[in-house]
Amino acid sequence: MSTTLAELSEFLQKGRVKNVKELVQKAIDEGISPNVILEEGLLSGMSVVGEKFKKNEVFVPEVLIAARAMNAGTTMLKPYLVQEGVESKGTVVIGTVKGDLHDIGKNIVKMMMEGKGLNVIDLGVDVSAEQYVQAAKENDADIIACSTLLTTTMGEIKNVVDLVKKEGIRAKVMIGGAPVTQDFCDSVNADSYTPDAATAADVALGFCS
């Protein structure tokens, strides 16, 4: 790996937006392929952050500032990636289920998934089963990701799973949130439950590959 990309990865892990922008520009100027900059500079840095998060070596704020730095870098790279015909690794439709207005967990999962190079379409909060399915159809999504914080709204996840099956769309349904468990996942026949954001991103990438 070039020194520039190694530095880029390091500064991304520290959440340094200014340094990340400078190093992305430097890498472009050095003639490094945009896709290599994305993979070996930005995504590799986020991958390190994700692994550290899973091992409790970094916490949510550190993930967030790293994700912010990655977004700054990918925004700069986007026109070059389009020019080179680089496509995202998969598409995720994400939202917090109907009746639930909490978005913290959903936002963290979204950032971690973007950190894996996935295209994430955020439907926000209070999302009905119909809205998930419609967005998945419109975007040919690989994954529908449902978040819930409330015990009182987790039942809504079953409506999403049932509608996905009824409509016969190909998207896998991933679920997570404070009250959700593997037992619950099994009981509603969702495709995956993950206990934390980093694992959710790993599983999502696995579904897309």
């Binding site: 949510v60 704020p61 967030l64 500032i65 912010r68 909490h102 978005d103 936002n107």
Partner: peptide, 8 residues
């Protein structure tokens, strides 16, 4: 959720 990144 809205403030989390700014706060971080």
């Amino acid at each position: 959720g809205d403030d989390m990144i700014d706060f971080s």
